[in-house]
Amino acid sequence: MSDIGVVAPYWLDRPDTEVVGIALEAERNGFGTMWLGEMATYDAFSLATAVGLRTERIGLRIGPLPISVRTPVSVALGVSSVTDLARPVAGVGLGGSSPFIVSGWHDRPWQHAASRMREAVGVLRSVLDGGRTDFAGDHVRSKGFRLRRPLPGLPITVAAFGPAMTRVAAEVADEVVLNLVSPEHVASVRKAVDAHAAGVGRTPPRLAVWIPVALDPGPATLAQAAAQTAVYLSPPGYGEMFSALGYSSLVERARAGEPRKDLAAAIPASLIASVGAVGSKSDVLARIAEFHAAGADHVGIVPTTAEDPSGARLLAELARR
């Protein structure tokens, strides 16, 4: 299952603790990776510790975490804590997040995300490798910190949307991750990542993609997926991508401030299918194969759980592929 991982979903209509059940099902069915981020429920490092104490083998990937909110030192402390208190972390991810979260929730500057990312990755890599911080950049500054329990060589993933962040990710990350994109977008990013990496003389990083997956979905499952997709209609990057897929009117409505509930009701199943895998088992597997063929080294599936608690049926069916 090294080419397919599982991503913790944050469905608004399900118990928050379901993510632990998903991790247990993912491990039981032989998946090698579990991605654990954060939204409006658990702190990512606390969640990873809880999952790590309840599982034995599945690789814990934490993030992406917003670089304007989490400093390189705080990220290093977090992954080191999970490793020491639960079990080793398999990787950590960083992202630019959105103005709504960075500036609205946390009162932090969102601008200059790409140049901030370049500095943050450099400092984080040095700290994880055991170095003492001594860096004063345009956006990131740290002096005198050394991690007591270094994690040398820990892979750093960068969430990329837009040409500037894609270039940075290609030049400094170990892996690039995309969320809610079409296979065509994956192919375009794969080409750009390879070109940028070649331009600085490095091996291109791996490319991962996260996609929502709905096996034989009923109305409740489609409504669940639509409610979450509505959150991504307005943020920079996502909105432009959905517009390119033919849903510009929904993006305009979202950016005009239309309530998320109304937007979710207007999202057609075709939009969800354009950035995910929806249908029978054979449909889902064929769609995952499309993302691999487009250039994704890894596909992280986001299980819909409205009619499939903890994604148990989906994960069991994919394990028997």
Rank of each mutant, 00 (worst) to 15 (best):
P155G: 10
E290A: 13
Q228H: 13
T33E: 10
P183A: 07
R14C: 02
V73I: 11
H185L: 02
W105G: 09
D174W: 02
E307F: 07
A76H: 04
L53P: 01
F45M: 05
L245Q: 11
S115R: 15
S282F: 09
G59K: 11
P72L: 04
A136P: 03
A214M: 12
A223G: 10
R118C: 06
W105L: 13
P268G: 07
V19W: 04
F100D: 08
G59Q: 14
T33S: 10
P152C: 11
S234G: 14
E307S: 14
N179H: 15
D174Q: 09
R132N: 00
P72D: 00
F100P: 00
L36C: 06
A40M: 13
D297W: 10
S282P: 09
G239F: 02
L180S: 12
V89R: 01
M1E: 09
I267K: 08
T166N: 07
G21I: 01
H112F: 11
L151E: 12
I288F: 05
L315S: 04
G131M: 03
G59N: 15
V302K: 08
H185C: 05
G201S: 06
V231N: 10
V51W: 01
D134L: 03
A293W: 12
V213D: 05
S115K: 13
F100E: 12
D134F: 03
P268K: 04
V51D: 00
L315H: 02
V193R: 00
R108S: 06
